[in-house]
């Protein structure tokens, strides 16, 4: 294959797209719809995962120190250094007493000298942290008397999140396969409409690689077109949804910002390009 032939492939790909404009438009529309379905599902799963992580961040660990332990700051530093710990808040026993008084509705429960409550640290965690492991590490630190966290709740939450993730990934994979099937079938239609062209190319002595190239580029352009349209529709649609829900954002904290848009556009573009190109190669192979 000569390099100077490449502009010919590109020209042929574009020429064929324009001359078969109706078929090209229909293909881009179908690819767009397929990628839109994937994108919607992707956003749904990403937000579900995000909500799960937010819930996880609500998990707190309380680390109670030994009565009269002299070096609470050292423990605080060691706790802050543990992986997965986001924030460390020191709650001196005096504050603990005030908190207890509030709960019990009584005043002056203990005098400053008689306060039997221990000093305490409250740890908040990152979305991916494992509370049981952090609790174990915290309990082994010198000066720590007891570590408490909502074991039953975290176990339940962990189960729900893992289940959600597995189901989400499986469904997302199925959607990807569905999109692949749709894209390949669509491109097969465009190749089928031009099987005579392939036959003539072969008869006049074109090599298989030469036959494949224009179709491959055409598939990539169709896939890219579908991906761009789907990206615009999804990002605009999602921004609109976020805008509409902005007043409820405290209760429905959806993923926002450029990060999710970038990931979505990247995923759609990669799928459009790969599936378009692969679809073409797969479809042309039948006629070679």
């Amino acid at each position: 294959m000569k390099i100077r032939t490449f502009p010919y492939f590109l020209r042929e790909a574009f020429r064929s797209l324009f001359r078969n404009s109706l078929l090209s438009l229909a293909s881009v529309a179908i690819i767009t719809i397929a990628l839109l379905l994937f994108g919607l599902f992707f956003l749904f799963i990403a937000n579900l995962q995000h909500l799960g992580e937010l819930a996880w961040e609500q998990v707190e660990i309380r680390v109670f120190l030994e009565q009269g332990y002299k070096n609470p700051q050292t423990v605080g530093q060691q706790l802050a250094a543990l992986p997965g710990v986001k924030n460390v808040t020191f709650i001196p026993k005096e504050e603990g007493a005030i908190f207890l008084e509030k709960i019990l509705g009584e005043k002056n429960l203990f005098s400053a000298e008689e306060n039997p409550l221990p000093d305490c640290y409250r740890l908040s965690l990152t979305g991916t942290a494992e509370p049981a492991a952090i609790a174990r590490q915290a309990a082994s630190l010198p000066g720590v008397e007891e570590v408490v966290y909502g074991q039953a709740f975290t176990r339940f939450l962990r189960l729900v999140l893992r289940l959600g993730l597995v189901v989400g990934v499986v469904l997302l994979c199925l959607t990807v396969l569905g999109v692949l099937y749709l894209v390949i079938n669509t491109i097969q239609l465009t190749v089928f409409a031009r099987r005579q062209e392939i036959e003539i190319m072969k008869l006049v002595g074109a090599t298989n690689a030469f036959v494949r190239w224009p179709f491959f580029l055409e598939g990539i352009i169709l896939g890219l077109g579908g991906a761009m349209l789907a990206s615009v529709l999804l990002t605009k649609g999602y921004s609109f949804l976020l805008q509409q829900l902005s007043s409820y954002s405290r209760f429905i904290p959806l993923l926002s910002g450029n990060g999710i848009n970038r990931t979505l556009i990247l995923a759609l573009t990669a799928m459009g390009l790969c599936f378009g190109g692969l679809g073409s190669l797969f479809s042309v192979r039948r006629y070679l």
Partner: peptide, 20 residues
Amino acid sequence: KLLPRKTVYENVSFALEVIE
């Protein structure tokens, strides 16, 4: 076996283009 979406010139030049 002519290609309907190519002109006369393109139908003929096609045979030369595919052999580079």
